[in-house]
Design a protein around this nucleic acid. Sequence first.
DNA 1: GCAATAAGTTACCATATGGTTACCTTTGGA
DNA 2: TCCAAAGGTAACCATATGGTAACTTATTGC
Lengths: 142, 142
Amino acid sequence: MQPVHYDANLCVMTRFSGLIMGKWKPIILHLVECGIDRFSAMQSHMPTISKKILTEQLRELETDGLISRQELKAKAPKIVVYRLTPQGTSLRRLIDEIIAWTLTYLKDEIPDDVVDVYINTHPDLAKRLPWLKHKRKDENLS
Amino acid sequence: MQPVHYDANLCVMTRFSGLIMGKWKPIILHLVECGIDRFSAMQSHMPTISKKILTEQLRELETDGLISRQELKAKAPKIVVYRLTPQGTSLRRLIDEIIAWTLTYLKDEIPDDVVDVYINTHPDLAKRLPWLKHKRKDENLS
DNA sequence: GCAATAAGTTACCATATGGTTACCTTTGGA
DNA sequence: TCCAAAGGTAACCATATGGTAACTTATTGC
């Protein structure tokens, strides 16, 4: 192999990272997919996020074409609704693959109740985690 | 949906991000997979990385169980060889999915020669990018 | 007329991450 | 004897990212 020069600024993974890897972005995309589509509703699901940060993250997701932002006019206080775009939806499927891999990677470390939250909120996840079944069965026996 | 409280510190995506999303880690994993297994060889493929950063990233990948580090003893200058662990190998496959998604997401923006580098260095990638075929065909015609 | 609510914005602060440059250690060979 | 090469450490610096707290705007119900 001759020396190909890799440059982190051209790295596709770095671009992906910028799209999705903000501290709150995976959670925001998940909430939007679940129909938690309002600013204040998102805040109540993420009690430790500040308004500034939530605004920033939503704006970036919008600029990157992953969510849409719509102001409902003629309403009393301003109402804004966020939705996943088709690109956002396709990204959600990839995120599910990442979650499945990472849960497997962390399976001896992560608490069962955290695993349960993922299983309960991600419909197709359980199928991808064969080790899960055995773990639950063992627990039932003990 | 009742208000489940999401905490970015428990977020599996955040854990995944820590494993892989350092500025240089995807490139390092790729090089190691390709058999570029020595410190100095990696440096010559990443001309702008410093020794300190390369050392740090390698140590983190090792701590996280994605690569192994072996000193070959009784050699003149110290020789160290890095390899992918089985976990590192399985992660590489997931990274290929991420690259495929991101190349599709960026397909109108990313220069053709950068796409070519990815195609040439990732054996199974071309199959996942149906839009690529059309692009190449158009170019041949013009 | 006044408070409450949704969805922010502004100014400012703290820490994590990446980066530069110089120095270190071991050993074989000229 | 002393230099070169491999694979680092140490001390220090710059910027990006996330965070806090207070203020803003528009409208409706009391």
